[in-house]
């Protein structure tokens, strides 16, 4: 079945699975997992440079920049100001004007701070960024972020790194019905079926990191996530049958 490309501002992607680069045991495993995931967009974080770091130790030396679009994040920021500063630094590296904006509320839940997330979205949109914004699954908050000019709104399926899957599919459905920008589920995905659920609901993509990086076999799990994303997308496009209470025989019921 022919599918359309996923458009995010001036960017176009065939793969709808976005993967992170954190928590891998080695760069080699990461590289293999990225390859197996089929992803075209990979996320990275901004941190202080290692003073005295030897050439070859940079994460970006292990990533084919012609093949992947780099999506820097503002992970670890707890205020709009910090997130904006991080985004500006990320852009200064000259690799991408995309930003995965996340402004967190506290360290235990890693849930987004809705007020500062909105403020930072407004500022970064004005600064000309292509803003992909992490939010809770609250449909009203999601709408406000769209109205502020976000290119994509990315509700959490469940708390970051929790692997609990899509906890409130109803909220995701309401977000999908209410918003017109691409919706990408970001965070909380534990296994392949979680990705499929998000895609079957009609999300335009899924972003995940821990589910692959901390699986016993990250490369196999990356492939599983790729297939799950494609399956879910195909099922969504195919138009599933309605759920019914009673049986409906597949074989003719008449006698010979």
């Amino acid at each position: 079945m022919e599918d359309t490309v996923l458009k995010l501002g001036k960017y176009e992607f065939n793969s709808r699975l976005f993967v992170g680069t954190g928590k891998y045991q080695t760069f080699d495993i990461m590289k293999e997992a990225l390859e197996a995931s089929g992803s075209e967009v990979i996320t990275v974080a901004v941190r202080r440079a290692n003073i005295g770091g030897k050439p070859g130790e940079s994460l970006l030396d292990h990533i084919d920049k012609d093949k992947y679009t780099i999506l820097p994040n503002t992970a670890g920021c707890y205020s709009a100001d910090e997130a904006v500063r991080t985004a500006l630094l990320a852009r200064e590296m000259g690799i991408s004007d995309l930003i995965k904006l996340e402004v967190l509320g506290d360290e235990n839940t890693l849930l987004p701070d809705p007020v500062d997330t909105l403020k930072a979205t407004e500022t970064l949109v004005k600064e000309g960024f292509t803003v992909l914004v992490y939010t809770s699954d609250d449909p009203i908050a999601a709408k406000r972020l769209q109205d502020a000019g976000a290119t994509s709104v990315m509700p959490a399926g469940a708390p970051i790194g929790s692997g609990q899957g899509i906890l409130n599919p109803n909220n995701i459905r309401i977000i999908l019905e209410t918003l017109s920008v691409p919706i990408i589920v970001d965070a909380g995905v534990g296994t392949a079926s979680d990705v499929t659920v998000a895609m079957e609901l009609g999300c335009e993509g899924v972003l995940l990191n821990t589910g692959i990086a901390l699986a016993k076999d990250p490369v196999k799990m990356a492939r599983a996530m790729k297939l799950a994303c494609e399956s879910g997308r195909l099922a969504h496009l195919s138009g599933r049958i309605p759920k019914k209470l009673y049986a409906n025989a597949s074989s003719p019921l008449k006698d010979f």
Binding site: G22, K23, M30, V44, R47, L59
Partner: peptide, 10 residues
């Protein structure tokens, strides 16, 4: 001075 770079992240 703050000198930053990209590291692994999700």
């Amino acid at each position: 001075l703050e000198i930053v770079t990209f590291v692994g992240g999700g």
